[in-house]
Design a protein around this nucleic acid. Structure first.
Lengths: 247, 247
DNA sequence: CGCGAGCTTGATGCCGATCAATGCATGTGG
DNA sequence: CCACATGCATTGATCGGCATCAAGCTCGCG
């Protein structure tokens, strides 16, 4: 857990390479920074943590110390109400940030669970704040990331509040493929990392309904579904669903 | 619309008084600050804007320059999808912040509409960023506000994803009264500033369903409903609904 | 006074939840 | 290697909650 001395023997190149295609690269890459600042940045994110599939990176109630940037793997975040109602609030892939929920109260307010063996950069938050006071580009990037998370959640609220099952699934799949494409993966083929139940929780549906929606989209020729292997045959049709032209 | 010179003739004292009970007071009140810093802060938030009932403070697509702190009045924010689907994403009262959605893209991504004649503090964002680099308490408070907004939205997602109509309404009313109480108002009586349709949009329900839910809660003795005048007769029962004990 | 926006209430139908059975892939132990 | 268990997915049948359609109702206001 602690940044042990030997960490400094880790070659830096692989890290930089990974960050090149990272949403958060401006949090950890030299954008017009002095050597001194660069040193500080690299030190700050030099701690890694691996999380086995099914394990939690943090849980509701854990004290908040750090943000986490996903290096490899896949996570879900979920909130749980008093009575045990459970809601997946998001899925995070490489280059995305976890832990913003904890800043407000110094306690995490959701669980972050790895859906496959994963590896994250640990970003001690008070160090990040300190550095972002010195370096305005870093500050701006942090604010952007938080703002975009707020906007993303607005989109989910729209989805949960006004879309029907197939529309929700279409929106979900398009969002996933778009994010995968930004990372150099196919825009039309993907392997789901989560179960139907987790998709359902995220979309406000039961797993049976998710399954039926998959089948329906497949029957309509928009998808090819083989368990968790999905092929988008007609992305435009999916987009039309989301845009409501199919009313 | 423009901050005209005469704005500076506005007396400062009323502002301080208003901010005392303000959620955001640490953004604009002297918390161990030097006189110099204090001057800067006061200057930064010295511009006001009034927004008449039904008018927009900003709209989707407007360029983002400032955050806005509600001084008096009441707002709703709503996002609109391509096809005209509409979703109220929040209601803001005195002391709450508007505009965080615009930081990420430099464009506002939702509409902020006044539900009654309102008055806001204009907080130029780049000035706020600058000042928050100098003053860590300010920085921390800004981060907290953004994080809490993220957490709030998690709660709304839980509501939209897994609660039934009456539970949603109960959660909504309890949330409203809690925020009103924090501002010195009654914890049991309130006057709704929004229509049934706007409540419905926020809760992912149609206005008829909202109306029926009000009637049901009234029949059950939990509420007294007279148009927009609401009295909570049995807050515990409402809380029990939200907590799911009524399954 | 009468208009209109917003609210309530009723009747009906549909979408998705629920209950239940089956299918399919992976893994484990005999 | 097969038998069986287990977890996940699919599909069908039925049910219920909310949407929809359709009347009235209330209240504020010109």
């Amino acid at each position: 857990m602690q940044p042990a001395p030997h960490v400094h023997t880790v070659r830096i190149e692989p890290l930089k390479a990974a960050c090149t295609s990272c949403n958060l690269r401006e949090l950890c890459l030299p954008v017009g920074m002095s050597d001194h600042q660069l040193d500080q940045l690299e030190q700050m994110v030099s701690v890694r943590r691996t999380v086995a599939r099914g394990e939690a990176l943090f849980r509701t109630g854990d004290t908040f110390n750090s943000l986490y940037a996903v290096r490899t793997g896949f996570f879900k975040t979920c909130v749980t109400s008093e009575d045990g109602r459970d809601q997946v609030t998001g899925f995070q892939m490489a280059g995305e940030l976890l832990g913003l929920d904890g800043i407000g109260t110094e306690l995490h307010t959701c669980d972050a669970v790895a859906l496959e063996d994963s590896n994250v950069c640990v970003i001690p938050f008070h160090q990040l704040e300190e550095l972002s006071r010195e370096f305005s580009d870093l500050q701006r990037q942090l604010h952007r990331v938080m703002s975009r998370e707020i906007v993303r959640e607005h989109g989910v609220m729209l989805l949960l509040g006004s879309m029907r099952a197939e529309e929700r699934l279409a929106a979900f799949l398009l969002n996933l493929t778009q994010r995968l494409r930004a990372r150099g993966f196919s825009a039309t083929e993907l392997v789901l990392r989560m179960t139907r139940e987790e998709i359902g929780s995220y979309l406000g549906l039961k797993l049976e309904t998710v399954s039926r929606a998959f089948s329906k989209l497949q029957d309509d020729g928009a998808l090819e579904v083989k368990q968790r292997q999905i092929k988008l045959l007609d992305p435009a049709a999916l987009q039309a669903l989301v845009d409501g032209s199919a009313c």
